[in-house]
């Protein structure tokens, strides 16, 4: 039996705008575009087909208001689709997320290739509202839908010598035009230590705001590690490999003195470009203080006990 837990982000039928009003609004917006008051992008944005719903139970709240859906969809770092923050929302339409498979292999007893549709049904879906802190000193609050990475890893039965998990993004310049430039080495790769990967906060997202992921946010499957800078949360994953050695990671390969393997949010360790003690929450005018481990210290500080977090940045 399918139990529907109403999601607080989903408008009920009664809350929905009546069709007449909706079209009326569109006529007004189109008129404004016509006389040059609004950029034409507002029109095409309105024409996007709504993404499929994902039914999930909310299991974690951030205790703060979420960043608007529009802002989450239109302010992205996804260099596979361009450098500009709005480039991914413009260019990610070429990405084909169906069919899509994820290969899970390496040091596991049961390696395999999982179809994305099967992956969506394999585990009970949860909705978790997490803070998301970019290394560029901006942040958002995002309601993700997905499942803990630990559930997937347990399913493939890691061997005792598996110490790290390596992730890989799709590599296909015909779908990801940014891969024709040499801004990074392609494909994008990321990694976690086994205990980080198995931590209950570490999440595999299939959706946000109760719908499947928009392409520019890493569809159809991405990692979310809320206590680390955003670049660790690799998007559009095609392969997950369990390994015995620390795997290479994309930004670390590009600038090892700027981006470490751990990349835990740490207000005490500055990046050469960005002061990390403060951040601007998208939607705010003034910066706010950044919290150690992005506010998740109670959950995860224990993972790094005894480690020098200045050296292991």
């Amino acid at each position: 039996m399918l139990i529907r837990n109403p999601n607080p982000h989903h408008p009920t039928e009664a809350e929905a705008t009546a069709e007449g009003h909706y079209w009326n609004r569109r006529a007004i917006v189109a008129g404004m575009v016509g006389v040059g008051l609004l950029p034409s992008s507002v029109l095409s944005a309105g024409e996007e087909p709504a993404l499929a719903r994902l039914v999930a139970k909310r299991t974690r709240d951030a205790g703060e208001p979420a960043t608007s859906y529009e802002n989450v969809k239109h302010y992205n770092n996804f260099y596979e689709f361009g450098f500009g923050k709005e480039d991914p929302s413009r260019n990610a339409g070429r990405l084909r997320t169906h069919p899509w498979t994820v290969k899970v292999d390496g040091l596991v007893a049961k390696p395999g290739v999982v179809d994305i549709d099967r992956l969506t049904r394999l585990f009970p879906l949860e909705e978790r509202v997490y803070r998301h802190r970019c290394v560029e000193a901006w942040s958002m609050v995002i309601p993700w839908t997905g499942f803990p990475l630990a559930a997937l890893l347990k399913m493939v039965e890691p061997l005792s010598n598996a110490r790290y998990v390596a992730f890989e993004t799709l590599h296909d310049p015909s779908q990801m035009p940014g891969q024709r430039t040499r801004s990074l080495q392609w494909p994008y790769v990321e990694g976690l230590r086994m205990d980080e990967a198995m931590h209950p906060l570490t999440f595999m997202a299939l959706g946000l705001y109760g719908r499947v992921l928009p392409n520019q946010n890493g569809a159809p499957l991405r990692l979310v590690v809320p206590w680390k800078y955003g670049f660790k949360s690799i998007k559009s994953i095609v392969r997950i490999r369990l390994v015995d050695r620390q795997p290479p990671t994309s930004w670390n390969l590009t600038a090892p003195d700027e981006y470490g393997f751990f990349a835990n949010v740490n207000p005490a360790v500055d990046h050469p470009r960005w002061t990390q003690s403060r951040e601007r929450r998208i939607g705010d005018w003034l910066p706010r203080r950044t919290l150690p481990f992005n506010g998740y210290a109670d959950d995860v500080a224990g993972l790094y006990r005894g480690m020098n977090l200045v050296r292991n940045f």
């Binding site: 802002n71 239109h74 302010y75 923050k85 601007r280 998208i282 939607g283």
Partner: peptide, 15 residues
């Protein structure tokens, strides 16, 4: 008007 619709991205200060 939201910063996004005003053409200054979701982060108008940085933009």
């Amino acid at each position: 008007v939201s910063p996004l619709d005003a053409g200054l991205t979701a982060e108008p200060v940085a933009e």
